[in-house]
Nucleic acid binder design. Structure first.
Lengths: 210, 210
DNA sequence: TAGATTGTTAATCGATTAACAATC
DNA sequence: TAGATTGTTAATCGATTAACAATC
């Protein structure tokens, strides 16, 4: 099969896990990994792994498994880690600053092009390689360089307004870290990264097992 | 149906979204919401909403819908927001500090009982209401108060070792913020909160739509 | 060669959606 | 009452798992 396939969402969500694991294997000098090896490391079944990899432009070899270098290359390509995606972070609070200072982004193909806040106290401060800019200047900034992804790291009350601003500025995808569902037109992809929700999921499981 | 039902995972993952939304409705003074109202706000179908709510100890009324106050109470109870869960945060870097200073935890039933790091530079520093403690003191600290949840906010190379330490210390659930799958025994629930993975999911969708 | 492992088909499992009688 | 909306069953859709011939 070819990369132009539509990949099922659950498969897409597993791809980053495969990528992390295969990069580790490569660091350890492992050249081949079977579907069973990968499944064990990631808590999947070998059947799922083979099904998932069959969506990609990638073939295994009987008795050996999959070549880790090829697998990494294919995954990086599919996940866009071999291109640069321009990112704005909105909200220079603790979370926004943590992200802006996080070195791992550039290695994964994400370039922080701007960090914005409404708080005059924060505007002008340096965070990592970026300077906090006024929210008012966002439209202008986005005209200078087209932005691919906006990350919402503001309190939940402000999340929808920020999403609207990002959409107007022409972003094509939004990562929403606020604890609130935001609406966007269908051509703009929205993913909620749900730290609080994950915690609540755990709290639910604690309640069940007690 | 009763709360002692096993709820399907996708349902559990939607519960926090319902809770946030219903709390908002209550703030706006809305006393009743139909399954269609809720579905529209959350990007679901009314059918899904009714199915989900049927798992809970909660009845709607024809023509009116669901009473928001009752819905909030039931959701809070299921998600454990009406109890306190004791939390350790491991890693006092940007992300760990962001979490420790995040006020919203206590409102959702999570009490930060400790913030740990291995870096002598950080140990002793105050973050929010907590003081950064040495990783070495974790076992001892966990003996004083039993800990429900451990949050891993360390670089991915250290994630598995931290998970092992947390399991030994008796935590019953782990929220893993590191970009790496960690293993834990089956009785310890693990959820990965995947900021980087979410970004990569978006990058994939950007690649498709171009 | 013998045996391990792939790629793929078919079976199973589970979640979502549609439909509609019951009900307020 | 008439009509809106629930609760629930059945149908559909989609993902995971099992199984096994092909292959290295």
């Amino acid at each position: 099969m070819f990369e132009s396939d539509v990949m099922p969402k659950p498969v897409i969500r597993r791809l980053p896990k495969y990528l992390v694991h295969v990069q580790e294997l490569r660091e350890e000098g492992v050249d081949w990994a079977s579907s069973q090896d990968i499944a064990d490391a990631l808590g999947l079944t070998s059947s799922t792994v083979r099904q998932d990899l069959s969506h990609m432009d990638m073939r295994g070899i009987s008795k050996k498994g999959y070549e880790t270098s090829q697998l990494e290359a294919v995954l990086r390509q599919i996940l866009g880690a071999d291109r640069m995606h321009r990112v704005f972070i909105i909200g220079a609070g603790n979370l926004g600053r943590a992200l802006a200072e996080h070195g791992a982004f550039s290695r994964r193909g994400f370039e922080i092009c701007g960090l914005f806040d409404v708080d005059p106290e924060l505007i002008g401060r340096s965070v990592g390689t970026a300077k906090v800019m006024s929210m008012d200047s966002l439209p202008e900034q986005s005209k200078r360089v087209p932005i691919d992804i906006g990350i919402i790291a503001v309190p939940s009350q402000a999340a929808q307004a920020v999403a609207d601003t990002l959409v107007k500025a022409g972003v094509r995808a939004i990562l929403n870290l606020a604890y609130k569902h935001v609406q966007a037109p269908p051509e703009v992809a929205v993913v909620d990264a749900r730290i609080m929700e994950s915690l609540q999921e755990l709290a639910y499981s604690l309640g069940k097992s007690k």
